[in-house]
């Protein structure tokens, strides 16, 4: 007798489960139905690429979405190279890049029928940062290179205390790394002990919690928890970057496939930085607006 009742019970449980599943499916399907009418005016802009340009893109995206409620903008921060790749594959509308496109990427793009058009949205300096307790105030580009290759391994050698230098770099997948590689390393290899971190924020955090560390971040990521070093005697500020005095500076790009159609959302988006609001945003996040130099 008992067996039968348990069987019944399990059957009820099973029915319950099954009906739940079915209900879930039904709800999921129904969700889609009323949408048919509304789809107009909706547009999706997919942005992919550099983590350095990421804050600008995110801020622009939120600002733009607050103006145009029908537009959905997604931002991925997966590295400049990935941005280029996505643009070439047609998987993103706008590619954020903190370096210019490489020849190879251009060639691949043209072959696929994509014409990359660069929009310079802002300027950025790469600041060398150390812990504020570090007495070192200044480095030359050559010294910075020697630190990163491992030839200088102790702060003593650049006028600091006797502490081993903890060398921190951006991950090799970033445009920041490539710019630093080009402007500072000049084709030399970074030492083996270099730690690689995935983003500007992570580097700043590592440096602010590690007394003997040195790292490099975009201008927008400097705050009072870290100390920016003078490089070749120039402090990285908006003015020195804009005037070209600061040696480690670069433009930040957004790439589109061809020049976007005038009046389209994409066009409005990539020209946002030209207007006063866009410049204010760029300034607020800590980059140098293109109109100030």
């Amino acid at each position: 007798m008992k067996k039968i009742s348990t069987a019944e019970r399990s059957v009820t449980i099973a029915r319950l489960g099954a009906s739940l599943l079915v209900a879930g499916l039904a709800v999921a399907c129904l969700w889609g139905v009323p949408g048919q009418a509304v789809a107009q005016g909706a547009a999706t802009i997919v942005i992919d690429g550099s983590t350095t340009v990421g804050p600008i893109a995110k801020a622009f995206a939120e600002y733009y979405m607050s103006l145009h409620s029908g537009v959905n903008i997604t931002v991925s921060e997966s590295g400049s190279g990935n941005g280029a790749k996505s643009l070439i594959n047609g998987t993103c509308t706008i590619a954020d890049m903190s370096r210019f496109m490489k020849k190879k990427e251009f060639a691949a793009a043209v072959e696929k029928g994509v014409t990359p058009v660069a929009h310079v949205v802002a300027m950025d300096g790469i600041a060398m940062i150390v812990h504020p307790s570090n007495p070192v105030k200044e480095l030359t580009v050559d010294q910075a290179r020697d630190i990163y290759t491992g030839r200088i391994a102790n702060w003593r050698d650049v006028g600091g205390p006797n502490r081993k230098i903890v060398v921190i770099s951006r991950d090799t997948n970033s445009g920041t790394y490539e710019t630093f590689d080009k402007l500072v390393m000049k084709k030399e290899r970074m030492g083996n002990a270099t730690e690689y971190l995935g983003s500007n924020g992570a580097i700043r955090q590592r440096v602010q919690s590690t007394q003997a560390a040195i790292g490099y971040v975009g201008l927008g990521f400097i705050d009072r928890t870290v100390k920016a070093l003078l490089v070749d005697g120039v402090l990285p500020t908006r003015n020195t970057v804009a005037s070209g005095q600061y040696p480690i500076a670069r433009p930040l790009f957004m790439f589109t496939n061809g020049y976007p159609k005038l009046g389209s959302h994409v066009h409005a988006f990539v020209t946002l930085h030209l207007g006063p609001k866009g410049q204010e945003i760029i300034d607020a996040i800590g980059f140098v607006p293109v109109t100030s130099y």
């Binding site: 997966s78 590295g79 790749k85 691949a108 997948n173 970033s174």
Partner: peptide, 24 residues
């Protein structure tokens, strides 16, 4: 006590730059 790097982290971290378009 030294930092190290592993296979999985390399895959996750480096995929960003690894553009398969150019077949690198």
């Amino acid at each position: 006590l030294q930092p190290i790097r592993t296979l999985t982290a390399t895959i996750a971290g480096d995929m960003g730059e690894a553009d398969h378009v150019t077949g690198s």
